[in-house]
Simulated assay, not measured.
Amino acid sequence: MPLVEAGYVVLDCAEPEKLAVFYKELLDAEETDATANRVEIRGADGIRMAFRRDVNATPPSWPRPENSLQAHLDFQVSDLDAAERKVVELGGRPVDTKDAAGPYEERGYADPAGHSFTLRRTTPTAPKQG
């Protein structure tokens, strides 16, 4: 039996139940455990996340320069526009959606509690024909 049985990305927030709903809908996930101060989910691809109550939690200030990004989540998507619509519909907000240089397109967002994440299209963009 392995020493570490499971790993979670844990986000501190004032309202873990509400933030869990955002990520459950975005990741097509299911709730696996919930207590008064923590909600755990597992996404369709196996990603495990938890949301821990911290009434003093403050969101990072990224992309403002006075604080570094510290950490963020990356999610791979096949349709950036559709994923962005879903993020906004669920209460997230765009923070850096300009075209990114390089072989992959990506856009930055904040979840309803202010945590940073990136949607990244994994298929290189081909030039339009005609």
Rank of each mutant, 00 (worst) to 15 (best):
R93A: 07
T58Y: 11
L90H: 05
D79K: 06
L11G: 01
V21H: 05
V39F: 03
T125A: 09
A34N: 02
G102M: 04
G102K: 03
P2C: 00
E84I: 09
R64I: 00
L3S: 06
V88S: 08
R53L: 10
G130N: 14
P63L: 13
A36N: 06
A20R: 02
R48M: 08
F22A: 07
L26W: 04
M49Y: 08
D96K: 03
D81H: 13
L69M: 08
G114N: 08
G108D: 11
A110I: 11
T123S: 08
W62C: 01
T125H: 12
D28Q: 15
V88Y: 10
Y109I: 01
E17N: 13
E40P: 01
R107G: 02
P65F: 06
D12N: 08
L27W: 08
S61Y: 12
L27D: 05
D81N: 11
R120I: 12
L26T: 02
E17M: 12
F75M: 10
D81T: 09
E66I: 00
N56K: 11
A14M: 01
P94G: 13
A20N: 04
T97H: 11
M49V: 02
M1D: 06
R120E: 07
T32N: 08
I47S: 13
L19S: 00
Y23M: 02
Q76D: 02
D28P: 03
V10D: 05
L119A: 07
L3C: 01
D74T: 07
L27G: 01
L27Y: 08
D45P: 00
A82N: 06
F22C: 05
T32C: 03
Q129I: 12
T32A: 03
D33S: 04
Q76W: 14
K86Q: 09
A82T: 09
D28N: 14
S78Q: 11
E17F: 12
V88A: 09
L73F: 10
V77M: 02
D81K: 13
N56P: 01
K128D: 11
V87Y: 01
M1R: 12
E105H: 11
E84D: 07
L90F: 07
A100P: 01
V87N: 03
A6W: 15
A113V: 04
H72D: 04
V4K: 06
T58V: 14
E105D: 12
R52Y: 09
T97A: 09
A6S: 15
A44S: 15
R42Q: 10
E30Q: 15
T58C: 10
A36S: 07
G114T: 06
Q76T: 06
A113N: 07
G91F: 02
T58K: 12
P63S: 10
P127H: 11
A101K: 04
R85H: 14
A101V: 06
D111A: 07
G130W: 15
E31N: 11
P103H: 14
E66G: 00
A101C: 00
P60Y: 05
